[in-house]
Nucleic acid binder design. Structure first.
Length: 1048
RNA sequence: GCUCAAGUGGCGGAAUUGGUAGACGCGUCGGAUUCAAAAUCCGAUUCUUCGGAGUGCGGGUUCGAUUCCCGCCUUGAGUACCA
């Protein structure tokens, strides 16, 4: 009995060990970061999760494990590490759940967070939970509201190139008007004098200031769905109706808050050069910002020679061009079919054609119009524009290759310099004037800017691109028909949402003008509502709140009944804003909040000391889907906060790594339905594995209700399907009666056919026909060899449709599924939950396996099959330290081989972590343990440092073994072992001997031989002589320490 | 269409500045142990006509190419014909 207990104690009981150390870490606050330290700082951050009701699946922790390894590694390397975690807990799913169930989103969010926390804790992350942040907690969103107010109180000064207090702008307005103000602001602001400013009433002044503020109210076009009472994103709309429910959607103007992110376009672009992000990510931000330098040019619309119409007067078309140097090459204008001028300038003769074209365009998606470059289409409006210099008439066309959403929605078309314009001109027989000296444009346009001189262009003749552009802009300015312009695609970001579960705005309205609530009264907390839907009058859910008015006398939120009912009467109580902030508000600055200890987040969102100490995030890991949303907005807010001296850094994230998606491996079985027997007109023919039949009569009378589920191999053998059936394929198959195999026989038996029909079938006078329909089987019912536990499947909750189905297994009675890699989702029954893995194999196995799957940044399929490999490794590791009779580790001197293995491992693991190549480290550990086991190593001198190497990857087992070696406390801050190259020095080398570059055999030679000595030794070797078969080599290449290559 | 990735055994994937392709793990096969199973351990495992061939395809540079260059093909992700 004692022996059994002892034996039990000596085994690797991961569940006990992991629970023990997780408790230890929590109780001892092992990973609590300090804001004062002698050590250098290092800030490792994950993109915080949205706590959904579904909980974590194995895809979520991938990035967390990687960042945790890095954080733990940095602690071993002597850094003061900040590695916090929190929740992005405002969001749509909680709200939708609330709409369905009436449960308060705060309640479901709290429940979900508990689940997430439990799941995260069981994986053993070294998070400093004392600094947790939740975007939906009032203590946190107080500061989100405060930042919003700061944006409202700021304008962007182009002279100083930063955001400044709005008061400085008011001072300028009062002293000299706005004529000399160089600000980022709305278009079309009227110039006023100081005197005019002081004569404006308060409301007029506020209206003007709003055009300058960094957050402002503006009319924005949105996709309004009246039936759902909400605004939809572009991809929520399919064919003009809502994806959910298919309700009509209309474009509607709404007054919404916007963020003047365009003010920061240039700095957001330039800042990319200073940060260590992947090129592809930087590139997508560059594309999103979309800078192009060129000119804006105004063309007057004129009547053509004969058609005179009043409509044309004073109409102009504004275009933006990056090639003002080619202005004399313009031979037509192209407007987007949606351009507002189209209806006004189209001549009666062209109206029918233009209308038809607009209608046709409206049916095409933007993606469609974009991807299809082969189909050239367009219509002539009948109207003309006047060339600004030559005064020649230029025909105005519409074409769907011009998009309304970009720039002005109009193009000056230069066919000789732009391939799309060229193709369009060719197609519609429009002139293609050549304005390039010595360039042949008979086949295609010449789009290059360099090494070409402009010709046939009046005063631009002989100039290059740069000079001609400059001159053209100068002359356009003289005419008042253009100016040099830098265009950014980046548009101001809409900041209002018609939702409940988001940050309320700290805003109330007096005479329709927004007023900010003073910082002292923040946070303005979410009011209670009885339903989370929009109001019947189309107001956002906050319109349902009864207590949602601002009392400016007592500075508190009061009941709506107190609002002045009578026009003109003012009791100091005003309506509050009904919109809430978008999801990205809270996530645009949370990384600064972590820098301060929770207890000290009162007076400021973080103290100056804390912000100065931690500066910015050293390493940020998250998904690439945030490339142009979160990662751009965070950079914007950081730059703004820097301008206002609230933080000290220009960029939030120094280094950024995207983890790849983990895909699911679906299990696919084949469902056979609609089984019929059909009489044939003439005998079937089989040709190239295809069965040709001519059916005389469908069925022998009836449709059978047989439902057959077939194992993969049986199906492939029995039918002409040769490889995997596409997951969505449904195909009708005629069964080849000559193949009287298991599938055929089993179906036949269940059909209970009359003898006559049966014999017809067997004689080939009739044919068996059925549909094959791939169905998914929950991956948790399938083992590593793709075998399904059929009995379990029949009783599983996902199988109710197949209760009466006939299962046809392989000859050996196993049931095999096909595999298909697709996105991991509930819908495909391929979700693997980390809980089950932690329970069965332990957190250390999960951590190692997620890393072992492949390179962090690549998308990869999850297949539980391989987890036994890493789990086996952990068991071997354990056995290396703990034998059946107790600890195997002693003070024995390390052998040369022991040290070689250890230092080889130190070197590789350190390199791997620095390069974020975690998958290769796991292999390295396996090799090290295999080698040390073979060497029967028991030396503490070797085995203790090995634990520090393993600790970032598999922290629980490392802690346990470290303590079993007699150490006190945690391994977490033990120094990372120092690599000593002297242990890897070899005295001989096993030289690969190649013939014409192909390795044939190896020869062991001392390392200190000279080139000639190596050549001699190799050439006199009998294997070489045998390989040469008497030939004399032309050349012998010797690279000492590397290779010998014999040519000839 | 454009941009960015990526194509290596049955599978996930290794391979330093160009120098032994397929490390490590899974799976499979064979063996040991066991009454049996689990667990564990050992061995084999790119293909091959046994000469060789081979890293998506076709060229090139080189003594030597998974790696560098040119041209293509396929897959994935993003996308906004950016004028």
């Amino acid at each position: 009995m004692n022996r059994l207990i002892k034996r039990y104690k000596m085994q690797y009981h991961f569940n006990e060990i992991e629970a023990k150390w997780q408790k230890y870490w929590a109780e001892n606050q092992t990973f609590k970061a300090s804001n004062t330290s002698e050590k250098p700082k290092y800030y490792v951050l994950d993109m915080f999760p949205y706590p959904s009701g579904a909980g974590l699946h194995v895809g979520h922790p991938l990035g967390y494990i990687a960042s945790d390894i890095y954080a733990r590694y940095k602690r071993h390397k002597g850094f003061n590490v900040l590695h916090p975690q929190g929740y992005d807990s405002f969001g749509l799913p909680a709200e939708q759940y609330a709409i369905q169930t009436g449960q308060h989103p705060a309640v479901t969010t709290e429940t979900n967070i508990k689940t997430y926390r439990r799941q995260l804790d069981q994986i053993g992350f070294s998070f400093d939970w004392s600094r947790e942040v939740r975007t939906s907690s009032p203590e946190y969103y107080k500061w989100t509201q405060w930042i919003f107010i700061q944006l409202f109180e700021s304008w962007y000064n182009n002279e100083s190139n930063k955001a400044e207090e709005i008061s400085s702008l008011i001072t300028v307005f009062a002293s000299e008007g706005n004529a000399n103000v160089n600000a980022v602001c709305d278009d079309n602001i009227e110039v006023f004098t100081a005197e005019a400013w002081s004569n404006f009433n308060q409301k007029e002044q506020e209206e003007i200031l709003l055009k300058y503020r960094l957050t402002y109210l503006a009319e924005t076009e949105v996709n309004w769905c009246p039936a759902l009472g909400t605004v939809l994103a572009n991809d929520e709309i399919v064919n003009g109706v809502s994806e959910r429910g298919g309700h009509p959607v209309l474009r509607k103007k709404m007054t919404q808050w916007s963020m003047r992110i365009s003010a920061y376009a240039e700095r957001l672009l330039q800042g990319l050069d200073t940060i260590d992000w992947t090129d592809s990510l930087k590139e997508s931000q560059r594309n999103w910002i979309g800078k192009s330098v060129g000119a804006s040019v105004t063309f007057k619309v004129i009547a053509s020679e004969t058609k005179q119409s009043a409509n044309y007067e004073n109409q102009v078309i504004e275009v933006f061009t990056t090639r003002p140097d080619t202005i004399f090459g313009v031979s037509f204008m192209t407007l987007a079919p949606e351009h507002e001028l189209v209806s006004q300038i189209t001549t009666p003769e062209q109206k029918a054609e233009v209308d038809a074209y607009i209608l046709a365009t409206a049916k095409r998606s933007e993606r469609d119009r974009m991807a299809d470059v082969k189909t050239i289409s367009g219509a002539f409006t009948g109207a003309y524009a006047e060339h600004p210099f030559s005064k020649e008439p230029i025909p105005i066309w519409i074409g769907d290759y011009v998009l309304a959403g970009y720039g002005t929605g109009a193009v000056m078309s230069v066919p000789c310099g732009d391939q799309r314009d060229y193709d369009f001109a060719k197609h519609f027989n429009i002139a293609i004037p050549n304005i390039f000296e010595g360039v042949d444009i008979s086949e295609e346009a010449y789009a290059a800017k360099d090494n070409v001189k402009i010709a046939n262009s009046d005063f631009l003749n002989g100039m290059n691109y740069k000079k001609a552009s400059k001159r053209a802009i100068y002359d356009l300015e003289q005419l008042g028909q253009g100016e040099g312009k830098t265009n950014y695609r980046l548009r101001d970001a809409v900041f209002s949402r018609q939702r409940y579960w988001g940050e309320p705005f700290p805003v109330y309205y007096v005479n329709g003008m927004p007023q900010m609530i003073d910082k002292a009264h923040l946070p303005i907390t979410l009011p209670e509502v009885e339903k989370y839907l929009p109001t019947e009058t189309g107001e956002p859910p906050l319109g349902r709140a009864d207590v949602w008015a601002w009392d400016t006398v007592n500075n508190k939120v009061v009941a709506n009944v107190n609002l002045s009912a009578v026009e003109g009467e003012d009791n100091g109580i005003y309506p509050l804003e009904l919109n809430t902030m978008p999801g990205w508000a809270g996530s645009s600055w949370y990384f600064f909040s972590y820098m301060e200890e929770k207890a000290k987040r009162g007076e400021d969102f973080a103290s100056e000391d804390a912000l100065n100490y931690w500066e910015n995030v050293d390493l940020y890991i998250g998904g690439s889907e945030h490339a142009t949303g979160h990662l751009l907005y965070s950079r914007f807010w950081t730059k703004f906060l820097k301008d206002k001296a609230f933080v000290g850094v220009e960029e939030p994230f120094k280094k950024l790594i995207n983890q790849g998606m983990i895909l699911g491996t679906s299990a696919i079985a084949f469902n056979i339905t609609n089984v019929r027997v059909s009489k044939l007109k003439e005998p079937y023919k089989v040709d190239n594995d295809k069965i040709h039949v001519s059916i005389e009569s469908l069925n022998y009378g009836r449709d059978t209700k047989v439902n057959v589920i077939v194992s993969k191999e049986i199906l492939f053998e029995s039918t002409n399907i040769k490889s995997s059936v596409n997951s969505s394929a449904i195909s009708e198959l005629h069964h080849d009666p000559s193949k009287q195999n298991k599938l055929f026989n089993e179906i036949l038996n269940t059909l209970n056919l009359e003898e006559e029909i049966k014999s017809d079938l067997l004689e080939g006078k009739a044919v068996l026909t059925y549909y094959i329909n791939p169905i998914r089987i929950d991956v948790n019912l399938v083992n590593a060899s793709d075998e399904v536990d059929v009995e379990k499947f029949k009783s599983h909750k996902t199988s109710k449709d197949y209760l009466k189905a006939l299962f046809i297994s392989e000859e050996n009675e196993t049931f095999i599924v096909g595999r298909e890699v697709e996105k991991m989702s509930k819908r495909w029954l391929n979700v693997v939950n980390p809980d089950a893995i932690c329970e069965q194999y332990g957190a250390d196995s999960l951590r190692l396996y997620e890393m072992f799957l492949g390179p962090l940044e690549q998308a990869k399929p999850w297949n539980t099959a391989g987890i036994t490999g890493v789990h086996g490794f952990l068991k071997k590791l354990w056995k290396l330290y703990v034998g059946e009779n107790g600890l195997n580790v002693n003070d024995a001197a390390a052998t040369k081989d022991n040290l070689k293995t250890l230092h080889k491992t130190i070197k590789k693991v350190e390199e791997d972590i620095e390069n974020f190549s975690f998958n290769t480290s796991v292999s390295t550990f396996m090799i090290a343990v295999n080698e040390l086991t073979a060497q029967k190593c028991t030396s503490k001198e070797v085995l203790e440092p090995l634990l520090a190497l393993v600790s970032p990857y598999a922290p629980h087992i490392a802690e346990e073994l470290y303590s079993q070696l007699g150490n006190e406390g945690s391994i977490a801050t033990v120094a990372f072992p120092k690599f000593d190259a002297s242990h890897l020095v070899e005295s001989s080398k096993n030289y690969p001997i190649s013939f014409n570059g192909k390795m044939r055999f190896t020869i062991e030679l001392p390392m200190d031989l000279s080139k000639d000595e190596i050549e001699k030794a190799v050439m006199t070797n009998e294997k070489t002589i045998a390989q040469l078969e008497g030939r004399t080599p032309k050349k012998v290449i010797v690279v000492p320490g590397k290779i010998v290559n014999i040519v000839g």
